[in-house]
Amino acid sequence: MELGSKIRKLRLEQNRSQEEIAQACGFTKSLLSKIENGKTVPPIGTLIRIAESLGTKISMLLDDNDFNGTVYTPKASNMEKMVQTDQGYAFSAIAAKRPEKLMQPFYFVVQKGKTGKRTFSHFGQEFIYVLEGTMIYYVGKEEYTLNAGDSLYFDSVENHKYVLVSDEVKYLSVFCSDTNG
């Protein structure tokens, strides 16, 4: 099942309107409609807000399987499941088959000149580890230059954004939205 269809199915199972979910997420009903109809793929922060408003984890929106054991994700599998967003980057959820996890790791590939200048903010904490390339990452009013091997851990409710220095950056980002255990 496609991402938008999963969101619509969960929303309808809960007898909730698009307006209600959109308001809870802080965006328009029109945007939610576009997401549900597969006309746009939102950024990760938006998906996290949708999942939280529906009382689920982002991994449940990205994978149909219900598995609570050890999850092995081969490299080839990650490359096959890359999702291209309208924000100029592609991502793949790692270990998406396990729905009840405390954190959600993602693999990102971002290309210079294709991403917007959007600032993100969502509940939880985030960890970033740069695999290849260089980017400047802003958290609040602080600026960090991240090269391959560098990492950053921050409260993701703080406004954050990035600017690429190299033509392409590949990085791992781990989100944890349940900070209360």
Rank of each mutant, 00 (worst) to 15 (best):
K9T: 13
Y72I: 14
D63K: 10
F127W: 11
E132Y: 15
L3Y: 04
G4L: 00
L54S: 09
K29T: 06
I136G: 05
L31K: 07
L47T: 00
T134G: 07
I136W: 14
Q14L: 06
L32S: 02
P42T: 05
S151W: 05
Y171E: 03
A95H: 01
K170N: 08
Q125D: 11
V110H: 01
S121A: 13
Y72N: 13
I7Y: 02
E2G: 08
Q125H: 11
T56D: 07
V163M: 15
A96W: 00
G55S: 05
E158Y: 15
Y89I: 03
V41W: 12
C25G: 11
A95C: 06
G4I: 01
T73S: 07
E2R: 09
I128W: 01
G45W: 02
G140N: 07
M60F: 11
I35W: 00
S177W: 10
S151V: 02
L146D: 00
G88H: 06
A148Q: 02
S121N: 09
V110M: 04
V41H: 07
G88R: 02
M103R: 05
K29R: 11
M60C: 14
K34T: 11
S151T: 08
G69Q: 09
G116I: 10
F154Y: 08
Y171S: 02
F108M: 03
R49W: 00
L31V: 04
S156L: 02
G69E: 06
T145V: 09
F91K: 00
Y137H: 01
K114D: 13
K81H: 13
E132T: 14
Q87C: 13
